[in-house]
Nucleic acid binder design. Sequence first.
DNA 1: ACTGAAACTTAGCCCCGGCTAACTTAAGAC
DNA 2: GTCTTAAGTTAGCCGGGGCTAAGTTTCAGT
Lengths: 162, 162
Amino acid sequence: MAGGILLRLQFKLGDEPPPSLPSDGRKLPSKIHQRTRSDHASEVAEDYVEAIADAIDQHGVCRAVDLVKHFAVTHATVNNTIKRLERDGLVTTAPYQPVELTAAGSRLASQSRRRHEVVEAFLKKLGVSDQTAAIDSEGIEHHVSKETLGAMKRVLEQGWPE
Amino acid sequence: MAGGILLRLQFKLGDEPPPSLPSDGRKLPSKIHQRTRSDHASEVAEDYVEAIADAIDQHGVCRAVDLVKHFAVTHATVNNTIKRLERDGLVTTAPYQPVELTAAGSRLASQSRRRHEVVEAFLKKLGVSDQTAAIDSEGIEHHVSKETLGAMKRVLEQGWPE
DNA sequence: ACTGAAACTTAGCCCCGGCTAACTTAAGAC
DNA sequence: GTCTTAAGTTAGCCGGGGCTAAGTTTCAGT
């Protein structure tokens, strides 16, 4: 047997398009969950490109060891992740060379950074301590839709609703 | 030839889930990073116990098929997850029987539910649409610390800061 | 030029959370 | 009482993101 052809298609919707819920009649929770779950694939990617961009800003270049320190994981893990990022067209690299962001990677990085900043500033404005804002925004940023981000931005620019 | 062609299409509209498990009490204050990742396993646990509690509230019992519908995953996946939850002492179950929450599971469920409700209500109050609030709160709830949750609660009870 | 330490790579293993395929059990219709 | 079907189970595979251990490359210093 052996001869089977294994064709695997993997669709990864980008980022924004909310659920659409065409609804097959069922409750929406399922759709909602689908969307929520779908995000995580790229969370790590976003964290990495953000960290890479930071390193480049700070040291001119990003070496794997910077990411090792930043994420507190092993070199092996960083390597694996970088390979995935490269496969996905977000970074380029060569053996023993620094990691570079592609255009797509840069775009994603600044997008993520911007979102992160808005969330963090919003939390602070909410009255949360700087430290908690820093920690929580790390986790929250990946789950904030455009609409919610807009609402937060509005608050930062124009004050509270009502 | 023989064998036929194995055509395997795998559509993954969405992909992943959100993170977080803290027993309660946030994570490492000092190391900002590291927290976000590695938590994933327990986020699923929280989502599941929450869904199980909901099913029990609504239908008296929770069957695996309820979770299959709720999360839009296969029966096999639900089974695996339930086994993990059982291993972790959050639920009890027997072949072909409904899933029951242990004391720990119930505790985690109501905790998660409460957090979820606060986050969702807060987002709505922020001016976000009901639908977006429902979606975003799903992802955000796992990353909200006690402090941030408290700030949101305060807003709901006493209005905006300042 | 050599060498030792730091940076990097590779191989192999884990668990999680998805999936398909194929099977078993439980239950409702008739 | 079958018999069909829904529900549940099991086995096996996959990718993501961790790890350790062991080998390779780079590069400062001397």
